[in-house]
Each structure stands twice: as C-alpha cells, then as structure tokens.
Write a protein that binds this DNA or RNA. Sequence first.
DNA 1: GTAATGTCTTTTATCGGGAAAAAACATTTT
DNA 2: AAAATGTTTTTTCCCGATAAAAGACATTAC
Lengths: 317, 317
Amino acid sequence: MRLKPAVASAGEATGQGMSKSNNVYKDAFNRCLRLLDETKSLPSEPELGTLLGVSRTTVRSILSRMEETGLIDWNKRNKTVLRAPRPEDFFPEEETDSLAEIIERSFMRRLLAEGAEAGMQINELELAREIGVGTTSVREFLIRFSRFGLIEKRRNSHWVLKGFTRAFALELTEIREMFELRSAVAFVALPEDSAVWVDLDMLEVQHRQLASEIATRFNEFSELDERFHRLIHRASHNRFIVDFYDVIAMIFHYHYQWNKAEERQRNEVAVQEHLAYIAALKSRDPAKVDAACRKHLKSARQTLLSSIPEGRQAQPA
Amino acid sequence: MRLKPAVASAGEATGQGMSKSNNVYKDAFNRCLRLLDETKSLPSEPELGTLLGVSRTTVRSILSRMEETGLIDWNKRNKTVLRAPRPEDFFPEEETDSLAEIIERSFMRRLLAEGAEAGMQINELELAREIGVGTTSVREFLIRFSRFGLIEKRRNSHWVLKGFTRAFALELTEIREMFELRSAVAFVALPEDSAVWVDLDMLEVQHRQLASEIATRFNEFSELDERFHRLIHRASHNRFIVDFYDVIAMIFHYHYQWNKAEERQRNEVAVQEHLAYIAALKSRDPAKVDAACRKHLKSARQTLLSSIPEGRQAQPA
DNA sequence: GTAATGTCTTTTATCGGGAAAAAACATTTT
DNA sequence: AAAATGTTTTTTCCCGATAAAAGACATTAC
C-alpha cells in the first residue's frame, strides 16, 4: 500500500496554521486530467514532470490521487487510464491560482475602482486582512509590483499610490514606442535563417484566421497581440527591453478587462494593422517597418488613452 | 522621571528573538550628534523629525539617550546642549546600516567574487544563513534586486544568476544612451525660468572646483556624476527613465568600488566631458547637446566595458 | 488658538516555524 | 548502463508573532 504524500492531503486538514497552499499540485492535476483524455496510458514520471512543468514529487502526488479516484491503474511503470475524467474530478478553478495572482487581482480591482485617487496611501496590513493572506505575501507583491511605476515606497513607511493616470499612460507609451521601434529595426536585420521568420509566418497565419472570423473570435486578439509584440521585442536582444514588455502586458491585460467598449471594432482594426506591420517586416525594408510600426503604436496609444477617465488626473506635487 | 522608550533599549537586551534592528534610530542619532556641534540648543521635536527624516517617536528616543549620556539637558521645550559629542557617543557605523544594505553588499561581494559563473543558482536559505538574517529579508531583497537584470527567477523554484557579463554591460548602456539622449533633448526645451538651470549652474561650479583640485579630490567624482546625470534624466518627466537611473547608479557604484585602475585619469577626463556637456546644454543647441552627450556616454561605456574581461567574470581589486 | 509635548495605537520590518514542492540520493527495472 | 521508480533531504513559500518606527490622539504650554 502506498502512503498518501503530504502534498496531496493539504486542504483536507482543518484549515489550521496553513503555511502554503497546494495550488501548484491542483493546477498541474487539472492539466494532467486534460492530458488523460487523449491517451490510454501516461508516460514516465520525469516525462510527465517536464510536460506539466512541475517536479516529480508533485507528479507522484497527482498520480496518487488519480489512482485513488479510480482514474488510472498505477503500478510502477504501468499507468493505464481506466476512465475519462468527469467534471467532478477537476479541482475548482479558484483553487489553482497562486497567491501572487490572487493578490494582484484583488489589488488591481481596488486600483481601478472608483475612489482610488493618486496620492492615497497603501496599507499592507489592511490589504492583507482584506484579501485574507499574510502580510509577507502582500509585501512581496508590492515590491514586485512597484516596477510597474504605479506605486512608490516611502522610506521606512507606507506605499503611495501614484494612480492609473493619463500621465502614466503617456510615459508608458513613450518608452514602448522607443523600444518597439528599435526592436523592429533589429528584427529586419536578423539573418534569413533565423527562427523568428518561421514564428512570424505562423503568427501571420493566425492573424489571417482571426481576421476571417473576427465577428466571433475578436476576444482572442489580446493573447495574439502579446505574442506578436513579444516576438518583436525579443529581437532587440536586450533584457531591459524584453522585460519592459511585462509592464505593457500587465497594463493591457487589465485594460482589456475593464474597457469592453468598441472591443470588436478596435481589435478588427488592430489585426489589420498587425498584418500590415508583418508585411513590412517581411519586406525587410526599414522605412516600411518604421511606418507600419508607428501607425500601429499610435492607434494603440489612442485606445489606451481613451479608456482613462478625465477625472483621474495626477495631483500636483 | 522619564521611562526609557522601547526603541532606545533594543540591542541592549539578550539578542533573543530579535525582530527588527533599530538602525533607523542609531543612524538618526549619529546624524543628530553632528547637528549638536553647531548649535547651543535643539529645535522642537517635529522640526527635528523633519530634519532627520524620522518620526517623532524616534526623535524622542534620541533625545532620551542624549539626556542619559549627559549630552543635553532636556526639559520639555528646553533642550540645552551640555557638551560637545565625543567619538564614543556615536553608534558604530556598521550598526546604522539597514538590513537591505547589508544584504546587498554581501550579495554583491559574492556576485563579483571569483567563481560567480553565469547560470549558477542562488539559494535563499544559504544566503540567509551566510549573512545571518531571516529568509524573508533575503527573498525581499532578491525580488527588489531582480529589476537590475542580473538575476532571474525560475517559476516556483530557485533564482538563477545571469552574471555581470559583457552582454549585460552592453544592454545596460544601450538603454542608458537611448534614455539620456532623449532626456538631454528634453532638457534644452525646458523654459528659461525652470529651476533646472539654477541646478545646472551649481553643478557647473562644483565641477570646476573639482577640476581644479582633481589631484586630491578625484574620488569625489562618482557622487557628482550621479547628481549630474539624475538632473538630466529628470528632465524627461518619465518615471521609467528616471527609475532606470537606479540600475545605472547601482552598477556604477560597485564598478567604482572594485575598478580603481586609472581612476584619477578617468575621472579627470569625465569631469572635462561633463563641463563640455554642461556648456552644450546651456547653449540650448540640440545638435551640440547631442554631440557632447554622445561623446561622454561613449567613453563611459568604454570605461565600464574595459573593466569586464572578455568571457570571464569581473574580479574585485 | 496654535504648536508644542505626552501618551496611546497602528503599521512596518523581521524572524522562526511548518507545509508544499523541488531536488538529491538510493534502489530497482528493463 | 541507462532510465525508471522509491525514499530522504533541502528549499521555497507563507503564516503568525514581536520589536521598531510611524502615526494619531490627548494634553499642556505659550
């Protein structure tokens, strides 16, 4: 008889003195369930680990539970699928999020909510209590989040909200345009046999598919948008440029979530701009690239700016 | 009789279960001692707080100790200086550093030491034990430090050292040049009555003074260098550009510490380049500014690059 | 009545502890 | 002997607790 590993039993105990949630296990378990649908037997433990992006310890916990719930028969190398996963087999979605994600969502909801004025001070303890997590996690989140330029730390004191203002959007897009223009120029200088051209071709196909079904799939654009721009930024071969896209991605992620007005229209325009941009890149003509890039970034800036209410202005220092 | 505030008694207890060092108090105390030299009586508590950059709670702890050690006579509003501070009155320098500073120094020493190969993994626990601090502080430090682009986090696993390499220096200087060129252009567009011109004049005077005494004061350049470039970067009015100077400042701080070769010579050249740069700014001619800025940044890059041996890690002096 | 001082409360910084997850080591299987 | 599985150790993540430091409130002095 196999002993149930510790990792699989967490959350079943009395929520006493809980130290760390087992969301990594739960998320990997759910992903593994989807994998189950396709095969009759599972690969080796190390292989599963790589596939799911977790350690073998977690893989074994997953297999343990799958055996217990009659999903598979597990005997050493033999992992036979006994039945297809049912909805009840999955862990609830909300239990698969990391603490960092939970805190970020909670924080962003507050930040974008009415009454989040610039200059307002942020209270770690209050945030922690409100979200229901320890102060350490909130502190770590704020430190990580600070690089987005929306909050600032007062030396051995509280954090200050700088606010999601028009000024912020302008400063962000200024850098974005500088970086992307430079990356796009670097992109066309890449050798013919570079892998980026294959990636670009694939992205072009996906853009065309999306364009032809834009009426129903317009909400899939944001994901494609990020992949496309990240590919371009990566051509800079500069970690600061590549990392800066995290700031843009974060902002656009939340921007897309709360500004649904004209979404279909906006995305349709953007897809066409991307296609023109891709064509310019493939022409390898720096002048054409510059023009297509500028045009797209200009409308991206307009979109972002139009979503920021006038009322939320930065306070004079 | 006044009760001794808790803050003043820390460190005197048995180092058991210590939660937070009172370095803020000790550092402010030392700075207050220096203040004592000049006046016969101290200002009000709130005023002292602003002067020292600490809360009134800490100010009162300082005054308490100064009374106890016979430095002042303290009776409500009356704070009469009884004697000049002696060397023994000061807290040791090493006790005035914040934990973050201690960890940073320790970490940088390791990073620049022999055998710090790129790709090496960073162990939070080991670092914490070695420095003699809790893991939380180390974790927070690593998160904060990660924006410098020298380390990277593997998702729910360890940190990886990217190394202080030639590639790093090139990527850093690429952004620096982009940002500073843009800031310098913004600088000359600032109105005549802007405060920056006064600041620039002051910096020019200090540069001339340093230039005339370069033989003995060359090591004072790095501080002047930072103030000058920060003034220019601030003209961009872009938080991302301003914040990026933190990365540059950090790198140059440690660079100056371990690369003492030709220091006098290098600084002498840099001061002259700064003076030419300042003259260009004052001319308000964008073309001249561009040229002077480019020239200085080019030699700054050379200096940084020359301290990083090809294919190897940098070494301390 | 304003601005200081005196007192009390809240928040931040840091540690140690414990569960989750990773990683290392030992043993088997093919 | 290579690669899997089984077992043990280490490290990461997160919480609660506590002293330092900040901040708020109450009182007094000018």
